[in-house]
Amino acid sequence: MIPMPVFSLIDAILSIYSLIVFISVIMSWLISFNVVNRHNQFVDMIWRFVTSLTEPALKPIRKVIPYIGGIDISPLVLLLGIYFLREMNWWLAARLALK
Rank of each mutant, 00 (worst) to 15 (best):
L80M: 13
P56M: 10
N37S: 12
N34A: 15
T54A: 08
E55D: 15
I2A: 03
S8A: 15
I26Y: 06
A12P: 00
I16C: 08
E55H: 11
P75V: 04
R95Y: 13
G81N: 07
G70I: 02
L98Q: 15
V36D: 06
M88L: 12
L19V: 06
H39I: 05
I71Y: 06
Y17C: 06
L92I: 09
N40C: 01
D11F: 06
Y83S: 15
G81S: 13
Q41K: 10
V43T: 12
I13Y: 02
Q41C: 01
S74V: 02
V25M: 12
I82N: 03
L30M: 14
S74G: 03
P60T: 14
E87V: 13
P66S: 07
R38Y: 08
S74T: 11
V77S: 04
P75Q: 04
L14G: 03
G81K: 12
I61Q: 08
L53T: 05
A12V: 07
I10Y: 00
V25R: 05
L98P: 01
I46E: 00
S74E: 06
Y17L: 13
A57Y: 11
S15C: 08
V35S: 08
I46V: 15
A97T: 07
I31M: 09
F49Q: 03
S28I: 04
I31Y: 00
Y17G: 05
L98G: 09
M4T: 14
P56Y: 00
L96K: 01
S24D: 12
P3N: 14
L58K: 14
W90Q: 14
R95N: 12
S32G: 11
S32L: 07
F49G: 05
L79I: 09
W29Y: 14
P66C: 06
V36M: 07
R38W: 00
K63H: 10
W29N: 06
K63D: 11
S74C: 02
I31W: 01
V77I: 15
R95I: 09
I26E: 01
S15I: 02
R62W: 01
A12D: 10
I71G: 02
L79D: 01
I65T: 13
K99P: 09
P5K: 05
L85C: 11
Y83V: 11
P3C: 01
F42R: 10
I71H: 00
F22N: 03
F7Y: 12
W29V: 11
M88R: 05
N89F: 02
I73E: 03
L14I: 09
S32I: 00
L76H: 07
P56I: 09
S74A: 15
I10Q: 06
R38L: 12
P5C: 07
L19P: 04
I31H: 03
W47L: 09
G81L: 14
S74F: 01
S8N: 14
S15D: 04
L78P: 00
R38D: 09
